[in-house]
Design a protein around this nucleic acid. Structure first.
Lengths: 152, 152
DNA sequence: AATGTCCAAATGGGATATCATGGGGCACTA
DNA sequence: TAGTGCCCCATGATATCCCATTTGGACATT
């Protein structure tokens, strides 16, 4: 399987390292990612993590905009300024920098969530909160609340 | 990787020096920049820093303007006159001149922000304010695409 | 079903390399 | 002579390498 699926929670050690789930590492290798690109999610306390193709997609999108308009600048600000590279060490671990901790609230444990072509990193507590909200929204949709309306 | 990515804040020492993040220095070297050029951003308290090709970008912009209008002249004045060269010392540091401090409000710490082909220098507080605004604009964009659609 | 064995993955930690930062000293110059 | 820029080195913090130990699940055996 070459997609990031399922989820797992791993502990951060005293040096700030955390193991990427073996299954994810296998996908990373199968896809030939030599480096991982991590991006602060726009509206959630999570990081999207994937290969450079993730970044390429953003850059291609930006290229379509007028480079001198603010939108293009905002987009670049986001995908370059709010992104970072992650290095897998030889034991398959990554280090949780302050850059990541600030945005996610991660401190002692990390939740890894597969998302197909990429995966996400969450603080476990916030993930379950968010998951509950997402389910509630879907439920409301089914029960006939106006689509697009944000519950709460 | 040969792009300026991610952000970091470093402290200015008693002599007015600040370390350019190692990753940025690596990119500078990989791109073969022998000198760094810093330009005052037009509409923000930040500096754009990059190789001389940074000027290409602005000159391209100027070329779009009607050469008979004052705008073109202003722009040229701006990009050719309102910039300065930055020298990396042997330890990979640059000196924060008054020219930079005045425009950015930098005093004790410097935030470096990768922007792909160049990077920016900010006063950390102002950066976070501006970043929040930029993200808000992007969110707006996304929500304009299709109401109720699951953002991705 | 309970227990034991094995293996892969996760975790811990010492040693080392890299980086940010502070500071001394020298040359040039205003 | 004070100020500035530049060179060099010291130090502490962090990141990385490498190896040891623990954990947990799959499988086999009884």
């Amino acid at each position: 399987m070459d997609r990031f699926l399922s989820s797992a929670v791993n502990r951060i050690d005293a040096k700030g390292r955390v193991s990427v789930p073996a299954h994810f590492r296998a996908v990373v290798q199968k896809r030939g990612y030599s480096e991982l690109y991590a991006l602060r999610c726009l509206d959630r306390p999570a990081m999207d993590v994937g290969g450079l193709d993730l970044l390429d997609r953003y850059e291609q999108r930006i290229a379509q905009e007028d480079p001198f308009l603010r939108t293009a600048d905002d987009m670049s600000f986001f995908c370059h300024g709010d992104g970072t590279f992650l290095k897998l060490d030889q034991d398959g671990r990554i280090t949780m920098s302050d850059f990541i901790r600030e945005h996610t609230g991660i401190s002692a444990e990390v939740a890894f969530v597969g998302r197909g072509n990429f995966f996400q990193i969450w603080e476990p507590g916030r993930l379950s909160t968010y998951g509950a909200e997402a389910r509630a929204r879907l439920l409301q949709l089914r029960q006939g609340t106006k689509p697009g309306e944000r519950p709460e």
